[in-house]
Design a protein around this nucleic acid. Structure first.
Length: 230
DNA sequence: GCCCAGGAGCCCG
DNA sequence: CGGGCTCATGGG
């Protein structure tokens, strides 16, 4: 089974995903926006995705959502307001997302970075250059950087996460502790370099990992049937 | 009570 | 340069 076939099977099995969730205007609850075309994002949505990418580090989205609702209520999906906020107050708002002391620091680092560079400048940068800049921010590793580039800046870079490693290693296509950049290169080479494709594929991988390819494998009804060709 | 979730940094040999 | 430790809440 090759990369493109896996993508097609997942599309067939799960259909369109609405990824990444953002909060509509005049609301405080993030929601998914289904659709098979690239939607133009507001600056507020971009910032929400960037903050969300930090908040979701090793954390279930459900808990992140609670944190984002609180941030929305206090109008904290905002670069200046995060910079001005007391770290302990920020930590209190994002408590439900776990690691709240660390994440409060990370959000402030990120807000400062965005303030110094500006969204406009960042989104017009070359992908690899942008990636290097993001990686220099304390609290931003490869997955977080790539999520920001793909989902907030809508530039084509494939996001690797624990789910991707799990699924691809179970398919026999990589080692389970494969290097991030190696698996990223492997997958990207099997696909068109396209934001929507990368976006959908990663979302499908998450969906598949939650439904069937969990840590404890649930192979009944799996659309990939990896065991049948291993 | 246990395990797990859309990781990253730091320290240590 | 890799391995182990820490950070932490909420849901199953």
């Amino acid at each position: 089974m090759k990369v493109l076939e896996i993508y097609k099977e997942l599309c067939k099995g799960y259909g369109q995903q609405g990824w990444w969730p953002t909060t509509p205007e005049n609301s405080i609850n993030p929601k998914y926006h289904p659709g098979n075309e690239l939607r133009k994002l507001s600056d507020k949505e971009k910032i929400e995705i960037i903050f969300g990418a930090i908040l979701t580090q090793n954390t279930s989205w459900k808990n992140v959502e609670k944190a984002i609702v609180n941030l929305n209520q206090k109008k904290m999906i905002d670069i200046d307001r995060v910079i001005e906020a007391e770290e302990k107050d920020l930590a209190e708002l994002i408590k439900a997302s776990g690691y709240y002391n660390q994440k409060a620091k990370k959000l402030k680092h990120m807000a400062k970075f965005l303030k110094e560079n500006g969204l406009r400048k960042l989104e017009h940068m070359d992908i690899q250059e942008l990636r290097q800049m993001l990686l220099s921010v304390n609290g931003v590793g490869k997955e977080t950087a790539d999520s920001i580039i793909l989902y907030a800046f809508q530039k084509p870079i494939f996001v690797i996460d624990a789910y991707t490693r799990r699924i691809f290693s179970r398919l026999g296509l990589c080692d389970e502790d494969v290097e991030y950049d190696e698996l990223q290169k492997f997958i990207a080479e099997g696909l068109d370099e396209d934001v929507l494709v990368y976006n959908q594929f990663h979302a499908l991988i998450v969906e598949h990992a939650k439904r069937n390819c969990r840590k404890k494998q649930e192979c009944d009804g799996c659309v990939l049937k990896c065991k049948s060709f291993k």
